[in-house]
Design a binder for these strands. Structure first.
Lengths: 217, 217
DNA sequence: GTTCAATCTTTACAATGCTTAGATAGGGTG
DNA sequence: CACCCTATCTAAGCATTGTAAAGATTGAAC
């Protein structure tokens, strides 16, 4: 039959890992296809067959790269946490050295990421819940979002750096607060308040402030 | 054919509303069956056919009470918000009059509800996101969780009661904070911290405190 | 008792997750 | 170069799902 699928189609990023045999890093292509579908049609609309279709391969092809639909989603989630960390680091580049200001900016960029990719953000947490730890792959990645927050918390003096448990507590609290704002700030019910405050970012800052996120300004 | 399904089986609560024709409030029975399955097998394991099976009716029967699978889940979510409000009110009964203490207790009971019914809590928000407002049915229910929080916030003096926008902001901030803690406190990663603090409730109190939830103690 | 509308069942269809068996094609070994 | 081996992909199929008719049942109103 006519093998009518387009050639490798270098996806979004050039495959850093060694590229496999026939298709050319189908694994990456499947993850990208999944993200495309999720962002376009919502998280519920995802199906393994649909992903395969989007990638131009047969319905059973994904099973050579992922044990499960679950495992595909997990890969999408890991990728999401990666992008989140990158997004946070990028936001920090434009911010002064004051640790509290940096922490505040981390919070804003965190929420903005969730607002820009709501379906993927949801999947990130759907799979984080089933995992043993926050996703720190063996892929010893430089950019670990959780570590970034913890270090900033310590630097901001929100907890005694000598007391690891205290740092941990404040870090977790910050994460919880940001998560709560991130998931809810997109609710249509908050539109009036958002307009009253003058836009998305002011609303986020105001909520984070109330929520104890590096409150002192 | 042998009609081998058990008779009405009064569900959990005796049907307060007028009971319909054949089965005896199948609508309620379906919602209860859905909750049973969700709590037993997880939120992903739910299927309309499975719910029908659990309720002892044919696979197509639910379509006479719900347009959609989505609409069944929405009903489960509304029921969940109802139970949440009741749970919060019940928790308030044992608490002194100090508004700040009451607000703190609201937060704890909120998080405990989410911890006790994680799958249903998830569904509550999955459907709340698609709704126009927080679920205040025409069923003018006395117990509205959102109003309860807002009134307590105003009473606690966390915002100028004369300034509705300020009260709204603080209420929303509290809700976001509690939501963040509620969704994350069950993460297995937090087990060490929970043990260090001496249990679930102390961990919740500590996190809520850091997260600006009626902070002054 | 007849009629009516709400309720439930039967049957059916397309789509999905996943399994099994077979085709294809790189890459190493002789 | 021929050979085989293994990873990758396809084809075909099964059980289950969501949902849509169309037909049966039954309580109630006249």
């Amino acid at each position: 039959m006519t093998k009518a699928f387009s050639p490798p189609a270098p996806a979004t990023a050039p495959p850093a890992t060694a590229r496999p045999y026939h298709h050319g890093d189908l694994r990456r292509a499947l993850i990208d296809a999944a993200r495309t579908i999720i962002e376009r049609d919502g998280a519920q609309a995802i199906s393994l067959r649909g992903v395969a279709r989007e990638a131009g391969v047969s319905p059973a092809a994904p099973y050579h790269h992922f044990k499960d639909k679950q495992e595909l989603l997990r890969a999408v989630g890991v990728q999401g946490f990666d992008d989140l960390a990158i997004s946070m680091m990028r936001a920090l580049e434009k911010v002064p050295a004051d640790p509290r200001a940096r922490l505040r900016e981390i919070g804003v960029s965190y929420v903005l990421f969730a607002l820009a990719n709501p379906a993927i953000y949801r999947i990130m947490y759907d799979c984080a819940r089933d995992m043993e730890g926050l996703p720190q792959d063996p892929h010893e990645k430089e950019h670990n979002a959780y570590d970034l927050v913890r270090e900033t918390v310590a630097a901001a003096g929100l907890a005694d750096p000598q007391n690891p448990a205290a740092v941990e507590t404040v870090t977790i609290a910050c994460w919880c607060a940001a998560h709560g704002v991130a998931e809810m700030v997109g609710f249509p019910q908050f539109a009036p308040l958002r307009d009253a405050l003058g836009g998305e970012v002011p609303l986020i800052r105001e909520l984070l402030r109330h929520v104890g996120f590096a409150a002192e300004r």
